[in-house]
């Protein structure tokens, strides 16, 4: 069992988002970076499947050297080894193309990603990799079990869940409910220091998406308070002033 887990490194969830250079760049000053929370689920599930089968779970990340502490965290959770493609992750298509190119001749049984990264929220790296490698891609999975080469998968659909079977190889993206993320223990942290972390130079990919500028949502005009004794006033305002019900 050979599993590849794609990992992105994102600003901590408490980060206040601001931009610099005339709103063209994300302001990284003082930002704490973490392993993308959904990728922790993907890795945990990969380990749960690979370990009993004597298999491997390899981490792949597209990003600069700054990402290495987060990659070491993934290794301390139990990943077998890691690969870092040494490039700025420009957009989802660029990242997927780098991963697909590296993975194409390595015969992974499955490629797992998080449902989305919590910074750019594209949610498309999994289907992009699937299409690039011509394997199925199953989005937002909440259950994954492998039995004799066939996976039974449950995934969220809008307004419900779908149950499916799929033979390997395939790509899938992890949603909450899939598992509880593993927390690295001391032995894992020690072992992670010496685990292999290969650095690979990127392949040339033409990107068709250019980030031009950023914008923060318009601040609210101020809250209008309504007496707790007269909630019917709220309903009246929502109906006749805001016109949303």
């Amino acid at each position: 069992m050979k599993i590849l887990v794609c990992m992105s490194v994102v600003p901590d969830t408490t980060t206040k988002i601001t931009f610099t250079d005339n709103n063209t760049r994300f302001n990284t000053a003082g930002v704490q970076y973490i392993m993308n929370p959904y990728d922790e689920l993907a890795l945990t599930k990969a380990l749960d499947i690979a370990e009993p089968a004597g298999g491997t779970a390899t981490i792949i990340h597209v990003g600069p050297a700054d990402s290495e502490p987060a990659i070491r965290k993934a290794l301390s959770m139990g990943a077998t080894d890691a690969v870092r493609i040494n490039a700025e992750p420009l957009d989802a298509q660029f990242v997927a193309a780098q991963i697909a190119d590296w993975a194409k001749d390595k015969a992974f049984d499955m490629i797992l990603t998080g449902r989305e990264s919590i910074d750019y929220n594209g949610g498309v790296v999994c289907p992009l990799i699937g299409a690039m490698l011509n394997i199925p891609s199953i989005q937002v999975i909440t259950k994954l079990e492998v039995n004799a080469g066939t996976a039974t998968i449950e995934r969220d659909i809008d307004g419900g869940r779908e149950i499916m079977t799929c033979t390997m190889p395939f790509a899938a993206s992890a949603q909450k409910d899939l598992c509880e993320p593993r927390i690295p223990n001391m032995r894992g942290i020690m072992a992670a220091r010496t685990k292999p972390l290969a650095v690979v130079e990127p392949v040339s990919v033409k990107t068709g998406v250019e980030y031009q500028s950023f914008e923060l949502p318009q601040p609210k005009q101020g809250v209008r308070m309504i007496s707790a004794d007269a909630p019917e006033e709220l309903i009246h305002l929502l109906r006749n002033e805001a016109k949303v019900i």
């Binding site: 929220n121 998406v209 250019e210």
Partner: peptide, 14 residues
């Protein structure tokens, strides 16, 4: 939408 609704990005598709 980016940063889970904390911001928006303008992207040029080429």
């Amino acid at each position: 939408g980016v940063f889970s609704g904390k911001a928006f990005a303008y992207v040029n598709l080429t």
